[in-house]
Write a protein that binds this DNA or RNA. Structure first.
Lengths: 160, 160
DNA sequence: AATCTAACTTGCAATTTGAAAGTAAGCCTG
DNA sequence: CAGGCTTACTTTCAAATTGCAAGTTAGATT
């Protein structure tokens, strides 16, 4: 309902969503906040995909401008800024879940089949759990880091 | 299961999906194929968001390489190339649907509330219908073009 | 006071985008 | 069957974006 931004390419909701989220990094930050319990700049940097600090800074600003995350300096250490998903941000859970399921089904990823099958069969439960964790500020990781893909591991195994 | 591409940022399925789909255009082409019945280069160009021809060409190539669409030159006119979603491509329906619902809920778009509410309440039916149309090559548009947003219309109404 | 740390900025080269113009293959018309 | 159209691209080139490395600044720590 809110936010009449600048000029849009079109009024199509898909197009509008993609203007906000359509890049290689924004949804990864949302993922880190949503299912990995990460909160700070430094944690995002160490998140495995090696985002450059200027890009991370830019994306955090855009996500905040878009109302998807909010920033708050921590009381205990005022250098630290805690980022948190807004309601609009947590509402991206279904998008992220479907992206995860699609990637796991059609690409070579490090996600265990059993986990994926479980999520696929219980979408509403997964969403509800993610949402509950957000509400209660439960910060324990819901999903692990999925270190590397099968291809990567094999490449390492069969060295050269 | 297939396709061990080149080097991945990580094995996380979300990250992998975003490496393939994470840009402003790819999913719009998928949308045009999935719900608007568009098939050809020219039709995509006229789809409302004004994609440049070099970008469109590049994205079609990438989507084909990724196994999301397939290309076939038409018998009737061999200049014409018909693009079609593969199974992997039609499996993006849930991703697109969730992006649509999120955009419609949180941004100012041209999608009628009633339509959105209907889709939100009947996700499986919407997906099934989209899939059925794909299987049967039913080309009649499932969703319209969503000409422009409320903001746009108001701006035009209150001219200057 | 000196050092460390977190979250940025800045500089700059390399890549990507986007608008416009060009091209090549295949149709179509007189 | 020549000349003009149409479709699907390429090419060109300026502008914007990315990514790496090297600062910078406010605040904590020793």
């Amino acid at each position: 309902m809110p936010a009449p931004k600048r000029k849009r390419r079109s009024g199509c909701p898909v197009s509008v969503s993609l203007e906000i989220l359509g890049d290689r990094w924004s949804l990864l930050i949302v993922r880190d906040l949503m299912v990995r319990g990460l909160r700070t700049f430094k944690e995002f940097q160490g998140s495995g995909e090696h985002i450059a600090s200027n890009i991370l800074s830019d994306r955090l600003r855009r996500l905040e401008t878009a109302g998807i995350i909010s920033a708050e300096t921590q009381e205990s250490d005022r250098r630290r800024i805690s980022y948190r998903l807004t309601e609009k941000g947590i509402d991206l859970a279904p998008v992220l879940l479907e992206l995860l399921l699609w990637g796991a089904r059609h690409e070579d990823t490090a996600a265990p089949c059993a986990v994926i099958a479980g999520m696929e069969a219980n979408r509403p439960k997964v969403i509800a759990e993610v949402r509950r964790r957000w509400l209660e500020k439960d910060q324990t990781p819901f999903l692990p880091k999925f270190q590397d893909s099968r291809a990567d591991r094999e490449a390492r195994g069969t060295k050269s």
